[in-house]
Design a binder for these strands. Structure first.
Lengths: 221, 221
DNA sequence: CTTCAATTTGCGGAAAACCGTAAGAGTTTA
DNA sequence: TAAACTCTTACGGTTTTCCGCAAATTGAAG
């Protein structure tokens, strides 16, 4: 079982709740941090002092603040730590259920467990911790389904780039020019038109504004 | 001071956190409910039994579930209760900070306090409760600012309706038809064009997809 | 090197969006 | 009531987007 746990979570209500889960499991040393940067420093310091944390429970979204943080999300934090402190187990504890985000985070391998903060967050987190102690991974049941179904549409870098320019107000002519300059191919007006049509069909959007709406809702852009 | 409080909140971590705030304030009877409908029934029942709750702490967003609830949001719940049990004090405890939503909820008068679940949610909620015991209202400082500043670009119902159709993929011609049928005025193609141009200028957007992006980012739509 | 298939490009016409102007309708003010 | 003003609409011309076809290019397989 773990006995030195760091909670990285901005909402203090949730902090308290998680703390209670841990106390229930008779984990003794519980630290928390409401900022990613601070969490990072604490983890690094502890590792240097040879008193490393053995578990990080980490939210994904941190609200911006007067402090300007270098590490702005739990994803960035976890990604850094997985490289620098490979032994550290990481649980992502979040409300985030968008397939594209879940998929990105989970497939990147930065997390050992992914738990949803919902009505059963308490039980879920408990299960995750128990699984991790026996070196298993854990994925919340509600998102297991999401991941297994292949209808998670993945867009290529090219497509994302194209959509970025569309969403920033570039005309197709302008995108054509930009792509030509940046040597991004294909870059003919014709291909750009065609690709956009493809995307509209893929997402069943009737117009470009509609497409943007759908993609924004899916948090793909 | 209150002594019979109901918490309506779906996330159980937050539930626990709020419970702790209340225990800190030596409030004795604490009940909670993870569903709006259930909360409603408990409140009504308690009122009938002559053991009414004197405070409701209520989230705004409840995640949908297998249960299909009649009351789907804290706003709907609070709005019902303010009518039916006028004596009940209501605290909205939410992460919701969109100016348009905050403004709508607060100006509707269904809440006696509006608290943001953020890094200082604990303190905030405590303050709110204390204020309410002396019959004051309470608005979280972070949103006080938002409400007072008038630079919150407010869109009219007409504009929002128009944008809704644009974002749903209707052509200007189609919008023209729909508005004519629904007797929404102005509805000429010309006026619709003009209004859209106005909105693009207001939000400094070059194209309609750009406009949608900006509005989505500002969470206006 | 040749062949074949898939991708990319170019082009022309149709549709939609864009833009300015002017006429019409409805209000307010004198 | 007339004049001034604002809001709405109509219309014509321009630009942008959309769409399909055919030519050109690329890349892999024989």
């Amino acid at each position: 079982m773990f006995n030195n746990v760091l909670i990285a979570e901005d909402q203090d209500f949730v902090n308290l709740g998680i703390r209670e889960v841990l106390q229930n499991l008779e984990i003794e040393k519980i630290t928390h941090s409401q900022y990613c940067d601070e969490a990072y420093l604490k983890l690094k310091r502890a590792a240097l002092d040879n008193k490393p944390f053995d578990l990080l429970i980490c939210d994904l979204n941190f609200k911006a603040d007067h402090r300007n943080e270098k590490i702005e999300s739990g994803e960035a934090l976890a990604s850094l730590l997985k490289k620098e402190i490979p032994d550290l187990k990481i649980i992502i504890n979040t409300v985030e259920e968008h397939p594209s985000i879940v998929k990105r985070v989970w497939s990147s391998g930065i997390a050992d467990a992914y738990v949803i903060k919902d009505r059963n967050g308490f039980k879920s987190l408990e299960t995750a911790i128990k699984k991790l102690t026996i070196n298993d991974k854990y994925l919340a049941p509600s998102i297991e389904g999401i991941l297994s179904q292949s209808n998670v549409i993945e867009l290529s870098d090219y497509e994302l780039e194209l959509l970025k320019y569309v969403s920033k107000g570039y005309s197709q002519e302008e995108i054509h020019q930009v792509f030509k300059n940046y040597k991004i191919s294909p870059n003919s007006k014709s291909s750009i038109e065609k690709k956009l049509k493809e995307l509209r069909e893929l997402f069943e959007a009737k117009t470009n504004p509609h497409l943007i709406t759908v993609l924004k809702d899916l948090q793909i852009i």
